[in-house]
């Protein structure tokens, strides 16, 4: 199963990578929104972890584009952001995000979430 972590902070990407790398996931990384969108379209990851405050294109825009494109709308989008206010959460869900995670986050909770997504999508995972 392919996962994409999009965050402009390399250390955060490292944390996600360390958290998930043992469990047979293929982890893609993107440092900004444009790169993330490109990789989603090219690689079709099953799950995308999106930071909101990224240079170029922010995570909400990426999410909106992904969810409105039929070829990518099946992607599970998890917002992973430092913006923790309810207003931000509402905005994220309105943009089509499936899950809203706020920083600091628990890596184990992330692991758990990813595992559940993999179970929910056996076909896609087998295809890749």
């Amino acid at each position: 199963m392919k996962l994409l972590i999009a965050d402009d902070e390399p250390a955060v990407r490292a944390l996600v990578r360390v958290t998930l790398e043992d469990d047979d996931y293929r982890i893609l990384e993107a440092a900004d929104g444009v790169e993330a969108l490109q990789k989603i379209r090219d690689e079709h990851p099953s799950l995308v972890l999106l930071d909101i405050m990224m240079p170029g294109m922010n995570g909400l825009e990426v999410c909106r584009i992904v969810k409105s494109d039929p070829t990518t709308s099946g992607t599970v989008v998890v917002m992973l952001t430092a913006q923790a206010q309810q207003r931000d959460r509402d905005r994220g869900l309105a943009a089509g995000a499936d899950v809203y995670f706020t920083k600091p986050f628990s890596p184990l909770a992330l692991l758990d979430l990813v595992a559940r997504v993999r179970q929910a999508q056996p076909d896609r995972s087998r295809r890749f």
Partner: peptide
């Protein structure tokens, strides 16, 4: 503040 805190929290939890 949240960014370093996320890292501290995350790596510590791991």
């Amino acid at each position: 503040l949240r960014t370093p805190l996320t890292l501290i929290h995350g790596f510590a939890e791991l």
